[in-house]
């Protein structure tokens, strides 16, 4: 459990990017970074791996397509074969459109629900904001300062050259000032 977290606030994304890269290069653990929009290159600066949600999408899509093809085959050729204009019972080309739609539907919903699940986003969850303006125009870098070798002065030395607006300390348990 992180006892102490240091928060460095920035006004510009390039400052934040440079500071994040510097903190990571100095070997200090980054808890998270909070930004008002998706900052490009931040995943590389933080060392995040590519998301595995693409696999969720792929698997859901395949389940949708194969499941719907099997279901159509079963209804049209096995459960109750119907002669439609003399076409073969299992006319595969005619079954492609619905299978495609099922694939898209499952892949889309699957990846969105997986995103909400892994990010712990759900209706009724109270947002805990590290700073009130983080969804407006402020960028905040949160560094874990519970271990040895890092304190406020160290962090100030590392990020000071990148125009940080403020460096403050917040303990997660008591620092719920901005949560709503």
């Amino acid at each position: 459990m992180n006892d102490r977290i240091l928060l460095a606030t920035f006004a510009h994304e390039d400052d934040l990017l440079a500071a994040t890269a510097a903190v990571r290069a100095a070997g200090h653990p980054i808890v998270d970074v909070f930004t008002p929009y998706a900052v490009h290159g931040l995943d590389r600066a933080m060392g995040l791996r590519p998301s595995r949600l693409t696999w969720v999408c792929f698997v859901c899509g395949m389940v949708g397509a194969v499941g719907m093809l099997v279901f159509q085959h079963w209804t049209a050729a096995i459960s109750w074969p119907l002669n439609v204009g003399g076409k073969p019972w299992n006319s595969l080309p005619a079954h492609v459109p619905v299978a495609f739609e099922a694939a898209v539907l499952l892949a889309g919903f699957g990846s969105v629900f997986a995103l909400l699940w892994v990010s712990r986003l759900f209706p009724g969850r109270q947002a805990r904001l590290v700073a009130p303006r983080v969804t407006d125009d402020r960028f905040v870098l949160a560094v874990d300062a519970s271990g040895p070798g890092i304190d406020r002065a160290t962090l100030e030395r590392v990020v000071g050259q990148f125009d940080s607006l403020a460096i403050e300390e917040q303990t997660p348990r008591t620092g719920g000032k901005a949560s709503c």
Binding site: T35, V39, L42, L48, R120, L121, G124, A127, L129, T135
Partner: peptide, 13 residues
């Protein structure tokens, strides 16, 4: 949904 601007969430988003 409790969105807090986390870069980890942004990355998946």
């Amino acid at each position: 949904l409790g969105w807090n601007g986390s870069a980890r969430t942004w990355h998946r988003y």
